[in-house]
Amino acid sequence: MIQLVAFLGNYGKEYEDTRHNAGWLFEAALPFADKISWQSKYKADFCCVDYDVFATWLKDAGLIKERDNGTLPIPDCAPKKIYFMKPMTYMNLSGQAIGEAARFFKIPASDVLVVHDEIELPLGTVGLKWSGGLGGHNGLRSTKETFGTPDFWRIRIGVGKPANGNVADYVLGSFTSDEKITLSQIFTMMNPMFAKFLTIKDATNLQKEWNKKKLVEV
């Protein structure tokens, strides 16, 4: 099961609403975002939460429901704690922060989830992916270099790609007002998947359902 969730982005006012910061924007839109208490550790904004506390956050947000016996649907294999981080190394070196935290807590790459923007998916589409190619994403490349393997989970938030022009300029460009409205809709629709993924033992069926899922027609 996932122990470490890394939301990718670039720090600094000038990057706040850019396409490359889709991972950070998703985190900020989570219904329990105000409960995450960030500390500056491991070259990142970092948060450690007891797993049962995290499960209660999900319940309070209406993302999971108690069983008939009043217990929460937490697998026996769930970790004792779950860690959230936003690397502060800039995108290209994200793996340094992720690797530092993973090594300290002895978390294998297979228990890491990276949430990031994805130019290979159009805006309105989201993908849950295990391992595989990096799609030219520098944050993923850095993470692979750190672990020595691409075998980690990703949530890919589609931002589309430019018909013409420089890709770097495009991902570092800001979302338009209409795109921000679309993103807000997408994030709301992603929340149940995100909660389910972090609370199930086997994500095979969820991955099939969310391989490339169009949520909003743009």
Rank of each mutant, 00 (worst) to 15 (best):
V171W: 09
N92V: 02
N92T: 07
V5H: 02
M189L: 15
A6Y: 00
E14F: 12
C48S: 15
E145D: 09
C48L: 11
K129H: 05
H116F: 09
I155P: 13
C48I: 01
V126P: 00
G165S: 05
N92G: 07
V115M: 11
V171E: 11
F194G: 08
K59I: 00
Y11C: 04
I2V: 00
C47I: 00
S177F: 13
Q207W: 01
D151C: 13
S142A: 12
N21F: 04
G95R: 05
R67C: 08
L4P: 12
A203I: 12
G23R: 00
P31Y: 09
T71C: 04
A163M: 10
G158Y: 06
P108M: 06
R103K: 07
T89K: 11
E217Q: 15
K65M: 13
G62D: 01
D68G: 15
N69Y: 02
W130A: 03
K41N: 10
A44C: 03
T89I: 04
Q39E: 13
G99K: 05
G132E: 15
G99L: 03
V114C: 08
R19N: 04
K196V: 05
T188H: 14
S174M: 01
I155R: 11
G23P: 06
E27H: 10
A163P: 11
Y11H: 12
K212Y: 09
E120P: 03
M88Q: 08
D169E: 04
V126A: 15
R67A: 12
A163S: 14
L183A: 06
N191S: 13
A101G: 01
T125Y: 10
F197Q: 08
L134G: 07
K212V: 02
L183K: 01
T125P: 08
L25H: 03
Q3G: 04
F104G: 09
G70F: 11
L206V: 13
K86V: 05
F7T: 01
T125H: 08
S142C: 12
P87Q: 13
E16W: 06
G23T: 11
L128D: 09
Y11P: 11
